[in-house]
Computed example of a mutant assay.
Amino acid sequence: MKKEFRIRKNEEFQKILQFKRFYASPSLTLYVKPKNETHARVGISVGKKIGGAVQRNKVKRQLRMMLQECFDFDGSFDAIVLVRPHFNEESYNTNKNYLETLLKKVKI
C-alpha cells in the first residue's frame, strides 16, 4: 500500500475507534469513519495475542496484500482492520473472503 493510503498516527486510530461504527467477522474487525477527502485510508492493528513479532509482521504483510487485491481506495472513509486471534487458524483465502464481505458491508 502507498503511504498516502495508510493511517499511522495513534490520534487518528483513536478517533476512528471512538466513532464506534464497526463490522465483524470471525477473524477480522473493521472500524469505519466517514470523511470528506477523495480517497480512503486504512490502518492495520495486530495485537500481542496473535503471537510474537515475527508472526505479527507476517499477518500484517498478508493483510496488506489482501487489501491491495480487494480494496480500491476510492471511498470517502477511513478504516482500521483489527486482527482477531482466530486469524491464524484460517487459511489465506478464507481470511480474504472475510475481508471482502466486510468491505461490501461498508456503505458510506
Rank of each mutant, 00 (worst) to 15 (best):
Glu69Val: 00
Lys104Leu: 01
Ala79Glu: 10
Lys96Asp: 04
Gly51Glu: 11
Ser25Glu: 01
Lys107Leu: 06
Val106Cys: 06
Leu82Val: 15
Pro26Val: 01
Asn93Arg: 15
Val32Asp: 09
Gln62Arg: 13
Arg56His: 11
Val106Trp: 13
Lys15Asn: 09
Asp78Thr: 05
Thr38Lys: 15
Gly52Val: 04
Met65Asn: 14
Ile44Phe: 15
Gln62Asp: 14
Thr29Arg: 09
Val81Asp: 05
Pro85Phe: 00
Leu30Gly: 07
Lys60Gly: 12
Val42Cys: 14
Met1Asp: 12
Tyr31Ser: 10
Lys35Asn: 14
Val81Phe: 06
Lys3Gly: 08
Leu17Met: 13
Phe77Lys: 05
Gln18Asn: 14
Ser45Ala: 15
Asn57His: 15
Asp78Met: 09
Ala53His: 11
Asn88Cys: 05
Lys96Met: 14
Gln55Met: 07
Gln55Asn: 01
Gln62Ala: 13
Lys33Ser: 08
Gln55Gly: 00
Lys96Thr: 02
Val106Glu: 12
Gly47Trp: 02
Ala53Met: 04
Leu102Val: 08
Val106Lys: 03
Glu37Phe: 07
Lys107Tyr: 05
Lys107Ala: 03
Lys105Cys: 01
Asn10Gly: 08
Lys49His: 01
Thr101Ser: 13
Phe22Pro: 00
Lys60Leu: 08
Met66Gln: 15
Lys48Pro: 03
His39Gly: 00
Glu4Ile: 14
Lys9Ser: 13
Pro34Met: 08
Lys20Ile: 03
Ser76Trp: 04
Glu89Asp: 01
Ser91Phe: 00
Asp78Pro: 04
Val46Pro: 04
Val46Asn: 08
Tyr98Arg: 01
Glu4Cys: 07
Gly47Asn: 09
Gly43Phe: 09
Gly51Leu: 04
Leu63Thr: 06
Tyr92Ile: 03
Lys2Glu: 12
Asn93Cys: 01
Val54Gly: 11
Gln62Trp: 06
Asn57Tyr: 03
Asn97Arg: 10
Lys35Ala: 08
Arg6His: 04
Thr101Leu: 10
Ile80Leu: 14
Asp74Asn: 12
Gln18Leu: 03
Arg64Val: 04
Met66Leu: 07
Glu100Pro: 00
His39Gln: 12
Lys15Phe: 09
Lys104Arg: 04
Asp72Ile: 04
